[in-house]
Write a protein that binds this DNA or RNA. Sequence first.
DNA 1: GTCTATAGAAGGATAGAC
DNA 2: GTCTATCCTTCTATAGAC
Lengths: 203, 203
Amino acid sequence: MTENDKQTEEKIFEAATDVFIEKGMDGARMQDIADHAGINKSLLHYYYRTKDHLFNAVFEKIAGQMFKKFAPVLDENLSLEDKIRFFIREHIAFMQKNPRLPSFILNEIHRNPERIRKLIQSIDINKLWTTLEAQHKEELKRYNITKENLPQFMTTVAGMSVFPFAAKPIIASIMEKMGYNFDEYIEERKEYAADFIINAIKK
Amino acid sequence: MTENDKQTEEKIFEAATDVFIEKGMDGARMQDIADHAGINKSLLHYYYRTKDHLFNAVFEKIAGQMFKKFAPVLDENLSLEDKIRFFIREHIAFMQKNPRLPSFILNEIHRNPERIRKLIQSIDINKLWTTLEAQHKEELKRYNITKENLPQFMTTVAGMSVFPFAAKPIIASIMEKMGYNFDEYIEERKEYAADFIINAIKK
DNA sequence: GTCTATAGAAGGATAGAC
DNA sequence: GTCTATCCTTCTATAGAC
């Protein structure tokens, strides 16, 4: 029954996603995944052969989701400033729903750098820059964003939204001690981060 | 022989530091640590009883080093602007020598949030703010840094220096594709990050 | 204090019945 | 397609000789 197949395979995939994100590849246990999926350990091997296969399937999917969030920035018919605001807001909102994702990815890329390297090599960065320049020539010049310092700028923008989640346990502890909480901090960050970046490039 | 003791215990500690930073708690193997130290596996247990004890000793030391880097900022007889430049430069220089440290810490705090929570609870944040305000009342007002938005600002500064190392495999791949390399990117970042922050708060 | 040998448990993976 | 039973390896940890 293909219907049933799909159900089980999907249940496994979802359970694996949860467990891998929570514990990482090394900390995850096949038994734990089976329990989460409500099935037997053998079925994991029936559908995915090895732990490695299962992990790769999960990671591929997640990394894809994460990178897809960057795409709309090149489509939206917005000013560069509004694109930055749009990206920060949407990216943080996405991570609010998946708060463990940044830490998971940042950890796993160190365990296997080759995987992410191949993914990056498949991106046409020159074209990306050409598109950006075609849409925002004036603004890029005014804000002093060049092809050369684009990596600095992009990693700054990414860091502004990603770092709070990567360092969540630290930040949550600090906020707690000051009588606030992490969720408030994140909600504020959507505006703070965007304003900070705009101010910095506007000089 | 206490002399010999010290040597072995230190060899173990250093080997454990290397292996834990490289592989994390879950990925590290006692055998691997013993090999790195050039001794037998049993000796690890003789000196540290369990893997957990050994890991805690290592983590405590490393987290301490990392946090100590923040302290001079409250001592130095510098303007707020120069303090920011000083911190960014020194912090990045420290991570240049220990590039795997950020990823290690950011990962382990998620595996055991309680540990970092206790460490933060032991810091007197009110006093920290009072000291900062006493030294830089004018500048803080001019730059619109308040006790309320201090966490936003501090995590921004920390993220500017830490994130590049946490995301190193991604950034290194991008730089490689553009014909540069990660080391150049980091060297540039010392100035870029400081300028970016100063510009943002100067408005 | 350091080693060898081994216990004891856990984890990934497979065989085989249904 | 799903389960039970089990193999095999790996890993932490300890016992005991020197």
